[in-house]
Simulated scan of single mutants.
Amino acid sequence: MTLTKNHVADEVQQALGVSRKRSMELVEILLEIVKSSLESDNDVLVSGFGKFCVREKKPRRGRNPATGTDMLLDGRKVVTFKCSAVLRDRINSGKVESPGS
């Protein structure tokens, strides 16, 4: 199952005992902070979870799959994520904890 923004808001609502509207506001605020930080080329580090980084990709040669012709693809920025050792160990242990544990 994919975790959606609505699922996260539901978990926040249950964990904090706030209204559904307030929990969605909190999730939106958090995501806006992360997005604006990444837009400014700043990394986002969440201890015990991982680090989001903005990386520059250089222009590269590619191929149009429909026609097979060579083309030059522009450089771009991409967001990468590296999980923390704590999260990696937790994922590999198979141990499932409920939020707030």
Score class of each variant (00 low, 15 high):
Arg60Leu: 03
Leu16Thr: 01
Asp43Ile: 03
Glu56His: 12
Val86Leu: 06
His7Asn: 02
Asp43Gln: 08
Lys51Trp: 00
Ser37Asp: 03
Ser19Gln: 05
Val54Pro: 01
Asn42Gly: 05
Ser98Phe: 09
Ser84Arg: 10
Thr80Ala: 02
Leu16Asp: 03
Val54Lys: 04
Pro59His: 10
Ala9Gln: 11
Gly62Phe: 00
Lys82Ala: 09
Pro59Met: 10
Ser101Gly: 06
Val96Ile: 15
Gly48Thr: 10
Val54Thr: 15
Ala66Asn: 11
Pro65Gln: 05
Met71Tyr: 10
Gly68Phe: 10
Lys21Tyr: 01
Gly62Thr: 01
Pro59Cys: 09
Asp10Lys: 09
Leu38Tyr: 13
Gly50Lys: 07
Ala85Leu: 13
Leu87Tyr: 05
Thr2Gln: 08
Leu26Glu: 07
Lys58Phe: 02
Met1Asp: 10
Leu3Met: 08
Ala66Val: 01
Val27Asp: 02
Lys57Glu: 14
His7Gln: 11
Asp70Ile: 11
Leu72Lys: 06
Lys77Pro: 04
Thr2Val: 12
Thr67Ile: 10
Arg22Ser: 08
Leu31His: 06
Asp10Gln: 13
Gly68His: 07
Ser36Trp: 02
Glu56Ile: 04
Asn42Lys: 08
Arg61Phe: 03
Arg60Gln: 14
Gly17Ile: 08
Lys57Trp: 09
Met1Pro: 11
Gly17Val: 06
Gly94Asp: 15
Met24Trp: 04
Gly48Gln: 13
Lys21His: 02
Glu11Lys: 04
Leu31Glu: 14
Arg20Thr: 07
Leu3Asp: 02
Arg76Ala: 15
Val86Gln: 10
Lys82Met: 01
Ile91Glu: 02
Thr2Cys: 00
Arg63Asn: 15
Arg90Tyr: 07
Gln13Lys: 09
Leu16Asn: 04
Val46Lys: 03
Asp74Val: 13
Thr80Arg: 07
Arg90Cys: 07
Thr80Tyr: 09
Met24Gly: 04
Lys57Pro: 03
Arg63Ser: 10
Arg88Lys: 15
Leu31Gln: 14
Lys77Ser: 05
Leu45Phe: 07
Phe81Gly: 14
Phe81Ser: 05
Pro99Arg: 04
Pro99Thr: 12
Leu87Val: 01
Val44Trp: 00
